[in-house]
């Protein structure tokens, strides 16, 4: 260490450059702030790729079980609350907008706006978790949980079986043995049970598309306990009563939304950290990398939900 004078000792930790004209956040091993920013951004995109792949496993599970148990998904998804799910979708999209705006504010050095936008993003995230909590609580009370804890309460059970009939009827049902089954409401109902009566069916118009019914006579009645259900011009074979393995849907529902909720919580932590730093005025046009990267992460959390919502809530 005799030449310590000539060459100031440099601790192996990345130290900030002393020169006030240089960017205070430039780590020692980067040449330019641009290089540092690009590295951070590339690293974040790689990390997001790993997140997508983490969720992809669950999407695979979803695809496999939906293909092997379509009736479970058709039946069970109706017990999710589309209204709350829809509100949550809007909440998350809005918070993503706030986050994007926060990045812009950081780039332009608008400190007040940055703090406001980050706070709004946080608010969105917390609202999402609150609504999710209400949904989970309802499912918990009904006993509609994952396989190991799937014990529907008597009410839920009754509701389960009743809802199957009731909603199907509303959607325009024709059972194979009762071609006179009443259909009402909606576009499908304009030609009630046409598909199964097969006597000079008139074309129907669904969402502006003319659909002609098949002239081929209907298939013989399906297996016992099953019935044909017409929905959107297509015939589906549906079980009379709730399928036994409904828990598969709720297992997948809780796994997917649960993992997503954990990511929301992690995102809220990251946003809080960025908010704290922004209140100290650490971000501006010269350095806004954390805002940008946390923003990317938050958008990913949003995008995952945008896939989860239709796949779980909006089956048919």
């Amino acid at each position: 260490m005799s030449d310590a004078e000539a060459q100031p000792p440099q601790p192996p930790t990345p130290h900030m450059h002393e020169d006030p004209h240089e960017n205070a956040y430039l780590a020692h091993h980067f040449d330019t702030p641009q290089q540092q920013f690009e590295s951070g951004k590339l690293g974040m995109w790689m990390f997001l790729a790993t997140e997508v792949l983490l969720f992809s496993g669950l999407f695979c599970v979803y695809a496999v079980y939906r293909a092997s148990h379509p009736e479970v998904f058709e039946w069970a998804h109706r017990f999710l609350n589309v209204t709350l799910g829809g509100i949550n979708t809007m909440v998350l999209i809005t918070s993503s907008l706030a986050m994007a705006w926060a990045v812009r504010a950081a780039q332009l050095g608008q400190q007040r706006l940055l703090a406001i936008c980050l706070s709004l993003t946080l608010l969105g995230g917390f609202s999402f978790l609150g609504i999710k909590y209400i949904e989970y609580k309802n499912k918990w009370e009904e006993g509609l949980l994952w396989a190991g804890k799937y014990k529907p309460t008597a009410e839920a059970l009754e509701h389960l079986n009743a809802t199957g009939h009731g909603e199907a009827a509303e959607l325009g049902v024709a059972t194979t043995d009762a071609s006179s089954a009443a259909g009402h409401g909606g576009a499908v109902a304009s030609a009630p049970a046409a598909a199964v009566t097969a006597s000079a069916p008139a074309p129907v118009v669904i969402d502006g598309v003319k659909v002609e019914h098949s002239q081929i006579a209907p298939a013989p009645p399906g297996p016992q306990g099953m019935r044909l259900v017409e929905r959107a011009g297509l015939l589906h074979l549906m079980p009379e009563r709730a399928p036994r393995e409904l828990w598969i849907f709720f297992s997948i529902y809780f796994l997917m939304t649960g993992l997503h909720a954990l990511h929301v919580i992690a995102g809220l932590g990251a946003i809080s950290w960025v908010l704290a730093r922004s209140l100290k005025g650490q971000f501006g046009p010269a350095y806004y990398t954390p805002v940008d990267l946390v923003g990317l992460y938050w958008h990913l959390v949003d995008v995952v939900w945008i896939f989860l919502f239709p796949l779980l809530y909006l089956i048919h």
């Binding site: 092997s68 994952w146 598969i248 796994l255």
Partner: peptide, 14 residues
Amino acid sequence: VLQVGIFSPAYGGD
């Protein structure tokens, strides 16, 4: 921990 029935045949898993 939870018996989610994804891999466990006891709950219809694969």
